[in-house]
Design a protein around this nucleic acid. Sequence first.
RNA 1: GGAGAGGUGGCAGAGUGGUCGAAUGCGCCGCACUCGAAAUGCGGUUUACGGGCAACCGUAACGUGGGUUCGAAUCCCACCCUCUCCGCCA
Length: 425
Amino acid sequence: MHDIRFIRENPQSFDASLARRGLEPLSARLLKLDEERRTLATELQQSLAKRNEASKAIGQAMAQKDMERAEALKAEVAALKESLPALEEKEKQAGAALDAALAAIPNLPGDDVPEGADESANVEVSRWGTPRDFAFTPQDHADFGPALGLDFEAAAAISGARFAALRGGVARLHRALAQFMLDRQTGENGYEEVNPPLLVRDAALYGTGQLPKFAEDLFQTTDGRWLIPTAEVSLTNLVREQIVAEDSLPLRFTALTPCFRSEAGSAGRDTRGFIRQHQFEKVELVAICRPEDSEAEHQRMVKCAEGILEALALPYRKVLLCTGDMGFGARKTYDLEVWLPSQQTYREISSVSNCGDFQARRMNARYRPEGEKATRFLHTLNGSGLAVGRTLVAVLENCQNEDGSVDIPAALHPYMGGITRLEPR
RNA sequence: GGAGAGGUGGCAGAGUGGUCGAAUGCGCCGCACUCGAAAUGCGGUUUACGGGCAACCGUAACGUGGGUUCGAAUCCCACCCUCUCCGCCA
């Protein structure tokens, strides 16, 4: 959500930032809506002031038992009744129109975000690790996975496409990855573990920006709730409608949850394998902090995600997303992309975004700075630390052997109950 | 699912349809008294929006949204949430 006052005062820089996102200038239209709203509001308030004054006089007249005067005043106020409801309605609509327009505009990119239309303009920041030199042709996990317990067929029969059942060693490995990540984020990295709601209301999704624009990407329940597409929704909304104590900042939350996505816009993409599912697990990281701390917090969060990949010895690269590739609520985003030998390319496994005060405005999440009377909006950040399903794919493919077995990374051994290698069955 | 109670300022807690943004207490801030503190006394202490250079003025908010009325914290309706009891249940 954008601040209309900021737009009022800086229309040209607002439009310039939108242009970097490839959007048409909008400030003129927004300011016109704002102008209409304020004119109507002032008009309405003046009418109400008149009515209040008269009503007060009626009360006084009646207290003095001057019924004649009271009746005369009543007749006078009755005239206002003609115009008031219509004016009220117009004012409300003008406010709603402005809010709707503002709610549909994505966050403005940070100054240090490269400009570009799509992912081809993303900037590689760094690489870690060296893709393994295979003595054989590495296989796609969708091909050798089933022998290890990755069952797409049974899941398809139960639930349809884009579902999988994990069985045996692969299920254990998946669980080990999730536990390892969660332990690491809660332990070394200091995030508070949360087990949050998976079904949420409209307002929560509006707060983080999935609604009103992206309803088609979500699953909805018959009672009107929604399945979370990411724990970012639940974790970030933990501070909605709150004035958080400054000395409790930054708040750092992590959660291991299933995520549900309709994948409406990605028909035909990644149809094979475990890369893109309607349901997957993710360890999410969310931070809530003061505006002046969010850039440093962003860097820290990326490091927390990178640490998982490094501990698992998975080669990856860090990419700074360009303006055209960022999500709706983000002002700056780093993606971590893990090396997949079967595809001979890096694939997204984590996305870490600084949303500035964009979500905080939509949630009305604030704090009161020391010594200040007014409240300020918090900054919110979120990132994957990591997507468990995709990490499983990365481990399977990077650690595969020619016979179809997979060596478990050492960091996971404590979680595997003595298993160090998955064997095809 | 059934029956009932309730949602008021930072907290506790009053509130008869009319001068109620809201008594009172606590807390908090300032001042006085004091060597200092406590106690005491006095004053102040919500938020959002609009207008104004400003002092300040106006509007709105008593869970949320509607309605009745010249006027609603107060009356009516719907919804949300909390609590108690019963039933069911992992």
